[in-house]
Amino acid sequence: MNSLATRLRAVGLFYRSVAPFMVGTSVLILLVVLWPALHEGWASGLVLQLLLVKLATAPAVWYLSEQLRPDQYWFYFNLGVSRRFLWVGLVLLDGSLFLGLAGALVAAFA
């Protein structure tokens, strides 16, 4: 396993630790805002705005995670992965999943 693969797997493992909250937020935003918008016909351009709303929740997750699990990083440091890499990777992964879910919802409605 090369170094990049190890880092990406580390991000995946780290994401699992916050996935219930992150995925829950995504599902909530999509069901409460996007789904009605699709039904009512005002969803044009909404996905990108919702993505920004979704990304805006990341600082809250980061803060809670730092407060509740300050020691969670040691394992990742031992993989050579920094805090910054973990959080940037997590936000990118979560944003991609959000777009994927939104795309699936739009496709299902079309």
Binding site: L13, F14, R16, S17, D71, Q72, W74, F75, F77, N78
Partner: peptide, 11 residues
């Protein structure tokens, strides 16, 4: 480095 606290992730 092995910290004083648990090292391995629960997941």
């Amino acid at each position: 480095y092995l910290p004083q606290v648990p090292l391995l992730p629960p997941g």
